[in-house]
Simulated scan of single mutants.
Amino acid sequence: MKTCPSSFNCPVEATIELIGGKYKSVILWHLTDGIKRFGELKRLLPRATEKMLAQQLRDLERDGLIIRTVYPVVPPKVEYSLSDLGRTIIPVLDAMCGWGEGYLASLKEKDRE
C-alpha cells in the first residue's frame, strides 16, 4: 500500500492542493518561459478576473512555488517567476501538456468521424 503524508490522504492530493486551483497550473506553465508581470499574465489568461488571478498568485507565492519581486519604482513594478521548488514541477507540467495534446487530438479525430 502507498504511504502518504499525515496531512493528506495521498501524494496526488498534495499535488492537487498546490496546483489544482482554477488557474494555478496555467500560471506555472506560463512562468516556465521566464519572468512575467501581472499584466502579461492577465493577457495570457483573458478569462481570469484580476481578483482571481491575484488570489491564485498569492496562493502560489504562499506555497513557495513562485517568487514575487516588487521594485521600488513609480509606477510600481511587480514580477513573478518560478522558485526553485516551482521549477521542480516543470516535468509534471510537461507531462500534463503532452497528455492534453493527445486528448485534444483524439477529440479532433472523433469530430472527423
Results as ranks from 00 to 15, higher is better:
Met1Thr: 11
Lys2Met: 10
Lys2Glu: 15
Lys2Gly: 12
Lys2Ser: 13
Cys4Pro: 00
Pro5Thr: 00
Ser6Val: 15
Ser7Leu: 14
Phe8Asn: 10
Asn9Tyr: 11
Cys10Arg: 06
Pro11Ile: 01
Pro11Trp: 03
Pro11Asp: 14
Glu13Cys: 12
Thr15Leu: 05
Ile16Ser: 13
Ile16Trp: 08
Ile16Glu: 14
Ile16Arg: 13
Ile19Asn: 09
Gly21Met: 03
Gly21Asn: 00
Lys22Gly: 06
Lys22Glu: 15
Lys22Asn: 14
Lys22Cys: 03
Lys22Asp: 15
Tyr23Gln: 04
Lys24Ala: 11
Lys24Arg: 10
Lys24Pro: 11
Ser25Gly: 08
Ser25Leu: 05
Val26Glu: 15
Leu28Glu: 04
Leu28Met: 08
Trp29Gln: 14
Trp29Glu: 15
Trp29Thr: 15
His30Thr: 00
His30Glu: 06
His30Tyr: 09
His30Lys: 05
His30Ser: 04
Leu31Glu: 09
Thr32Pro: 02
Gly34Tyr: 04
Gly34Lys: 05
Arg37Asp: 15
Arg37Glu: 15
Phe38Leu: 04
Phe38Trp: 07
Gly39Pro: 07
Glu40Ile: 06
Leu41Tyr: 08
Leu41Trp: 09
Arg43Leu: 11
Arg43Gln: 10
Arg43Glu: 13
Leu44Glu: 10
Leu44Tyr: 08
Leu44Met: 10
Leu44Thr: 05
Leu45His: 02
Leu45Glu: 04
Leu45Arg: 04
Leu45Cys: 06
Pro46His: 02
Arg47Gln: 08
Thr49Met: 02
Lys51Ala: 15
Lys51Asn: 02
Met52Leu: 05
Leu53Thr: 00
Ala54Gly: 00
Ala54Phe: 00
Gln55Asp: 08
Gln55Pro: 05
Leu57Trp: 15
Arg58Val: 05
Arg58Lys: 14
Arg58Gln: 08
Asp59Arg: 12
Asp59Ala: 09
Asp59Glu: 15
Asp63Val: 13
Asp63Met: 14
Gly64Phe: 14
Leu65Asn: 00
Leu65Asp: 01
Ile66Cys: 07
Ile67Ser: 10
Ile67Thr: 10
Thr69Phe: 04
Val70Cys: 07
Val70Leu: 05
Val70Trp: 02
Pro72Thr: 00
Pro72Phe: 06
Val73Phe: 12
Val74Met: 09
Val74Glu: 11
Pro75Thr: 07
Pro75Met: 07
Pro75Ser: 09
Pro75Ala: 07
Pro76Trp: 01
Lys77Asn: 07
Lys77Ser: 11
Lys77Glu: 12
Val78Glu: 03
Val78Tyr: 04
Tyr80Asn: 05
Ser81Pro: 10
Ser81Tyr: 10
Ser81Val: 11
Ser83Asp: 01
Ser83Gly: 02
Asp84Thr: 00
Asp84Cys: 00
Leu85His: 05
Leu85Phe: 06
Gly86Pro: 04
Gly86Leu: 10
Arg87Ala: 10
Arg87Asn: 13
Thr88Asp: 12
Ile89Arg: 07
Ile89Asp: 11
Val92Cys: 13
Val92Gly: 13
Leu93Thr: 13
Asp94Thr: 12
Ala95His: 14
Ala95Lys: 11
Ala95Ile: 14
Ala95Met: 14
Gly98Asn: 09
Gly98Ala: 12
Trp99Ala: 11
Gly100Asp: 15
Glu101Gly: 02
Gly102Tyr: 01
Gly102Arg: 01
Gly102Phe: 00
Leu104Tyr: 03
Leu104Trp: 00
Ala105Gly: 01
Leu107Trp: 03
Leu107Tyr: 06
Glu109Val: 04
Lys110Phe: 14
Asp111Lys: 15
Asp111Leu: 11
Asp111Thr: 05
Asp111Val: 03
Arg112Pro: 00
Glu113Gln: 07
